[in-house]
Design a protein around this nucleic acid. Structure first.
Lengths: 333, 333
DNA sequence: TTGTAGGCGTTATCAG
DNA sequence: CTGATAACGCCTACAA
């Protein structure tokens, strides 16, 4: 494999000139530039990105940390990220956190290493020590589906979304509404998710009582939804509506409800969250979340920060919209 | 940020010694090793991977090229890859090919650059020029869901799978079976997919006629499946079974069939492919493909090749199994 | 406009 | 066991 030096020698010029042709090519006469380019082609020269990264102190690599690549939510976010990255030269390395030990491996200060020009973190709460390090190293980072006092972030306006859902359900005569949510951060400190607080606020605004027994945090999977709904039906058999924190949980919950011989939506209405592709085919009412747009936006913010246009630790909130479908139909007029 | 040099100075040793401690730490006395490690901790030293990569001529980065991250098939494959990578220090960079221009950007010899210790390519046919380059550079590569004379690969035994499906359908009295497939390589040369040839062989073995009008290649999406089935029903209204090349296409196809007032499975049976998570909840009969295992296996092969245990251009074939569900029920006895 | 020298942070070689 | 010293391939002044 040939290097910049080979090209220089072959073309009878100095290394500096070749390098200049490589980047922008300013201050090089057309004649020599052509000669050099021709030589590069002839030698099948390709620049070594690693060497370039070392010299420039910038790797052209972005890192994204997600909890479970398997969920369509993250897949869509990733797609948004790729959209934003397509016109650039950045490569994307993905780190998945599926177990507590992954979390340690990725966020742990221990043997953490240097590279990446910026980081995107989805649905995960980075430990303070990690944030400290980021800030100290000057590595920009953006949170997706989360918030942090020292980092910029993008997220969903869950308060508004849940207001829509609760309004819709009450309008169609439901009064005992349950929430089966996923954790904001599956490995983070257990605390009320953003959806959960939105749910409470919405109930409150609607003048409805809050019953902690009607709020469950379940695994982010169909099984998680199913188990949760069973538990729910044992504790509160009289519920007439379920809101899930994700579509896949809603799907499992509906399955569980039907397995008990109850009808959806007649006995119990069900609403999902995110609006993944199959929701439509399952006739699942759900909250449509602009997953892709969020990924794209987060990436734009990150790129801007890398370019030096550091944003403050602002939060970009995306509006979500209820999509009414068969599992939670509109009130009969 | 501190470098190996800072550590050496602070610890009062030469760089070489620090480097040795970093890697394995052989030939270093316990005393100095401890002192150096203590110093590294105190200085919060973290090795610069870029510099290391340049020096070692190995980046510890693997690259995976997939057509559409959005499809659960690829997501599962990715998960398998991550499983195999978890115990290693390799990072994974993902390249998505969604449009013809992406393909050019990634496979094009033009401005292609150097790095990555190995490449995984899913459902895509790399151009010969690219393979030439790989071999010339000595970069190992493994194909997933594809085959190539000069590269090792992993795939599904579609012949066997389709034999199972056709057998099942004919056993339940279906005789006019159609195939709505996805392209093997959405951007590659149009040619019969592996499923398609398996389908023909299976029909043949069952003594059934082959009707090209009953074989369609459609977009890898629910809409693709739906449009295809509409076209199919126009051309051949008498079909009584549809096999799809993916579950998501099957879902769309079923939707299209029902939209025409036909019943699934009474009028037309439907079978998907892959067995994605929601298939069960849609009661979709489908071919269960070990997507995760394929990803894992491909990665293991790749890692072995990187370690120097170069495999020949062998092909690892994974068995798939029909899962009978409501959209293509067992024959009534 | 062009060439040269130094440096980016590690690893590897080779004397001591 | 340890410490210089030369790569690794490229970029960026700085000088010509």
């Amino acid at each position: 494999l040939s290097t910049i030096r080979d090209v220089a020698r072959e073309a009878g010029v100095g290394l500096g000139t070749v390098s200049r042709v490589l980047n922008g090519g300013a201050n090089v006469s057309d004649a020599t530039r052509n000669r050099i380019e021709e030589t590069m082609r002839r030698l099948d020269y390709r620049p070594n990105l690693v060497a370039r990264a070392l010299s420039r102190r910038q790797s052209d690599v972005l890192e994204v940390i997600v909890p479970l690549v398997t969920r369509e939510f993250y897949v869509e976010v990733l797609r948004g990220i790729e959209e934003a990255l397509a016109p650039t030269t950045y490569a994307l390395v993905i780190h998945t956190v599926e177990r507590a030990q992954d979390r340690k491996r990725i966020f742990g200060a221990e043997r953490e290493l240097t590279r990446r020009d910026g980081i995107l973190i989805a649905s995960l709460t980075p430990p303070e020590s990690f944030v400290d390090q980021l800030i100290e190293d000057g590595t920009p980072a953006v949170l997706i589906d989360g918030e942090h006092p020292r980092l910029p972030s993008v997220g969903v306006d869950h308060d508004d979304a849940l207001r829509q859902v609760v309004a819709h359900l009450t309008a169609s005569g439901r009064s005992r509404i349950a929430l089966i949510d996923r954790a904001d951060d599956p490995f983070g400190p257990a605390r009320a998710s953003a959806r959960q607080s939105g749910f409470r606020r919405a109930l409150d605004a609607a003048g409805m009582p809050i019953d902690p027994e009607l709020e469950l945090i379940a695994g982010y999977s169909a099984d998680g939804g199913r188990h949760a709904v069973e538990q729910l039906l044992d504790a509160r058999p009289a519920i007439d509506a379920v809101i899930a924190g994700s579509d896949i949980q809603a799907i499992g919950a509906i399955d569980g409800i039907r397995a008990r011989g109850l009808n959806v939506p007649d006995d119990i209405a069900a609403v999902g969250y995110n609006d993944i592709e199959v929701a439509r085919y399952l006739d699942l009412a759900t909250v449509q979340v602009p997953m892709r747009a969020m990924g794209r936006r987060a990436t734009e913010i990150l790129l801007a920060a890398i370019e030096g246009n550091a944003e403050p630790a602002s939060h970009a909130s995306f509006a979500a919209k209820l999509v009414v479908r068969g599992t939670a139909p509109a009130p009969k007029s």
